[in-house]
C-alpha cells in the first residue's frame, strides 16, 4: 500500500463535500430547470447524487451539475438599479403597442 497524505479537515477547512447545483431537464428539448443542490466530492458523484435525490421518480431525462462556486449571482441590493428601470418603460412590453384594426389576435 502506498502512503498517501491524509488531508485533515483543519487543513482544508472543509468538513463537508463540495456543494453542487443541480439542473434537471424534464423532457427532450425542454429547458433545464434548477432543482436544488447536493454535496459530493467530485463531478461524477455529484451527478449520481443528483440522480438519486432529484430524478429518481422519472422527473428528468437529463441532468446538469455545476459547482455552486461557479454560479455568479445578482445580490438583493441590485434590485433597484438592475430591475427597476424596466418597470417604468411600458413601451418595452409588447402590450404597449396597439394592434392595428383588422388583425385578429
Amino acid at each position: 500500500m502506498t502512503k498517501k497524505k491524509q488531508p485533515e479537515p483543519a487543513e482544508t477547512g472543509a468538513t463537508e463535500h463540495q456543494l453542487w447545483e443541480v439542473f434537471t431537464q424534464p423532457g427532450g428539448g425542454k429547458p433545464f430547470e434548477h432543482a436544488g443542490s447536493v454535496h459530493a466530492p467530485d463531478a461524477e458523484m455529484a451527478l449520481q447524487n443528483a440522480r438519486d435525490v432529484y430524478a429518481r421518480r422519472g422527473e428528468a431525462v437529463n441532468l446538469w451539475v455545476v459547482p455552486s462556486s461557479a454560479i455568479v449571482a445578482s445580490t438583493p441590493e441590485d434590485i433597484g438599479p438592475f430591475f427597476d428601470p424596466g418597470n417604468d418603460k411600458p413601451y418595452r412590453h409588447p402590450q404597449f403597442y396597439k394592434v392595428p384594426r383588422g388583425i385578429k389576435v
Binding site: M1, K3, K4, Q6, P41, D42, M45, Q48
Partner: peptide
C-alpha cells in the same frame, strides 16, 4: 447497471482516497 456504476465509483474513491479509507476497503 446503476448499482455497478455507483458502487464502482465509490470503491475507486475509497481505495484511492485516504490511508484510512484505503485500509478499510482493502
Amino acid at each position: 447497471r446503476y448499482h455497478v456504476r455507483h458502487s464502482a465509483e465509490w470503491l475507486v474513491r475509497l481505495g484511492d482516497g485516504t490511508d484510512e479509507s484505503h485500509g478499510r476497503v482493502q
